[in-house]
């Protein structure tokens, strides 16, 4: 019997009559609505920067046990003060949309389709390719002057890489392998 009255009391009509309301106020709220709260309430926050343009807006990345929940503007950033542009606001989808590639892919010469390959295997093959190409084309001296460079391997980087990544690229490619054809989008 008790469960019946409980069930009845949950019927908004009863609440409506008891509170003499017109059925449009809080009495018509379902339990799910009453229990509503922002999904980022108990999430961890990582403070980050938007990867899109050069303004450098601060971003708060809410995540919980290894899963992204939402990305919003960082109110304390002196540049953006919590705001973002449409691209910055779409950062969450940038990381979680279904067309994002998560598997290593390889295309053999003359092939028409991609084939699967493991990440470790791919790294070894690339290392071999670099090693052979460098061996074939390295120039130690050119009419007397030591130049120690190869122009047969080139690098074209975007400007959305971190400073540390750029540093490692320059250190390995130029200081290590002697590649000079290293370029990226930033010129002026």
């Amino acid at each position: 019997m008790a469960s019946l009255t409980a069930l009845l009391s949950k019927w908004p009509l009863i609440r409506q009559i008891r509170e003499r309301a017109d059925g449009t106020g809080l009495e018509a709220m379902s339990d799910k609505t009453r229990a509503m709260h922002a999904r980022i309430d108990d999430a961890q926050v990582a403070r980050s920067i938007c990867p899109y343009c050069g303004v450098g807006c601060g971003q708060l990345i809410f995540h919980k046990d290894g899963k992204l929940l939402s990305i919003e503007g960082d109110p304390e950033s002196p540049i953006s003060q919590g705001n973002l542009c449409p691209k910055g606001a779409a950062s969450y989808q940038l990381l979680t949309h279904s067309r994002r590639e998560t598997k290593m892919k390889y295309r053999a010469p003359r092939a028409k389709e991609w084939t699967e390959i493991s990440l470790e295997r791919a790294m070894d093959v690339v290392a071999d390719r670099v090693w052979e190409s460098r061996k074939r084309t390295f120039v130690h001296k050119q009419n007397g002057a030591t130049i120690n460079h190869t122009t047969a391997i080139c690098h074209l980087g975007g400007a959305t890489l971190d400073n540390e990544e750029n540093y490692l690229i320059k250190k390995l490619f130029t200081a290590g392998l002697g590649m000079v054809c290293v370029s990226n989008q930033a010129r002026i």
Binding site: P51, L95, E101, K103, V126
Partner: peptide, 27 residues
């Protein structure tokens, strides 16, 4: 496609929230 010799390695990259590092912005 059949007479393009290039061997292509496609490495999926991590997003900006999946790696730490510093950006230098326009100022």
């Amino acid at each position: 496609a059949e007479d393009i010799e290039t061997e292509v390695f496609f490495f999926p990259a991590a997003g900006h929230a999946e790696k730490e590092g510093a950006f230098t912005n326009t100022q």
